[in-house]
Amino acid sequence: MDSFTAGMLVEHASLGPGKVIAAKGDMLHVFFPSRNGHAATRIKLDPKRPLLRPAARQSDPWLDHLPPFVLKDGTYQLAHERLTQPQAIGHFKQVFPLGFNDPAYEGNLQTGERHYKVAAHKAFNEAFGGGKAEQLLAEGKVAELTHRLLHIDAKTNLLHPNWDKAPLRDGLKDEQAAERFHRTLFALLALPEPTQSAFEDFVGALDALPAPGSAVATWPVTTVFLYLAQPDRHMFFRPKYTQEAAQRLGYELNYAPHPNWRTYSSLHGFSRLLLEELKPLGARDFIDVQSFIYVTAGGSGYDK
């Protein structure tokens, strides 16, 4: 009979892939993503009916990032209620029956979920693409960079007017700090994939923006322009909804309130996985993933 240890990935004859959460003698506690609920399944090993075997591959993009389990009434459970991926997709289709091709999802500049964000993305490229940002930086036109950036932000309501927009606007009035902000932002955007050093340089520039009494480096401010510039590479992070969705889907975001690389790289991995899962529904980029996250977190209607 095969030997099983906590942390091992396994295959069940009918339940499919799972992860051993605890192993006590011949009693295993195994979490199977295919099963409804948030508890591990108790399985008593029986050499006469070997339904369980170690998985051929000991790595899985979802099972490798499960949140911690707690022992309650003899059962190992996730701390939050959980949706299976089919359940989450079903919930999304209750709101948008045609998925990401639903006209109500696409919307326009006043309604819907996608169109206004795509418009802001196009405006970002028009304002800064083709080397325009680098040229403005080289010419020392920091105020013009700031003006263009805030004009693009005004096309969306992704940032809260008091908690995010006001501190950012105040902080960017300091030209020296604003120059560092723009330089690190566009350096990060110039990379094919985000790196820890470039991300941390950008967060440091946000922290240096002077806005007495307020924190500029919130997660929404840190991620919004990256997202609008490159929605195929960067994700917008609104902690309330994103944490709730990740908990419901059983993915550990390693969240900390101050922007940091560990959380952002976890968000990046979560978003990539969701994008692959949602492509059959018509998902194209992280704009669609963000909308799915909002609905999965309990949002109804549009993120407007």
Rank of each mutant, 00 (worst) to 15 (best):
E252G: 01
N254G: 12
K240M: 08
Y255H: 07
P259S: 10
A256K: 12
R238T: 14
R238I: 10
S265V: 07
R248N: 04
Q247F: 09
L267A: 14
Y251D: 08
L249E: 06
S265I: 01
E252T: 00
A256C: 08
A245I: 10
N254T: 09
Y264N: 05
S265H: 05
Y241P: 08
S266G: 00
G250A: 12
R262P: 00
P259G: 05
A246V: 11
F237Y: 08
Q247M: 13
S266H: 12
Q247G: 03
R262Q: 10
Y255I: 01
L249A: 10
E244I: 15
Y255N: 03
P257W: 11
N260I: 00
Y251K: 14
R248H: 10
P259K: 03
W261Q: 00
Y264I: 05
S265L: 11
E244M: 12
R248M: 12
F237T: 06
L267Q: 13
G250P: 09
E252Q: 01
N260F: 00
R238E: 15
W261E: 03
E252A: 03
Y251E: 08
A246T: 09
P259V: 03
Q243A: 02
K240W: 06
A246L: 06
P239A: 07
R238W: 13
E244V: 06
Y255T: 08
Y251S: 03
N260H: 07
R262L: 03
L249N: 10
Q243L: 04
L267I: 12
Q247N: 13
G250N: 07
T263I: 04
R238V: 14
N254I: 00
P257L: 09
W261T: 01
P239L: 01
F237P: 09
R262W: 00
Q243W: 02
R262E: 07
R262H: 04
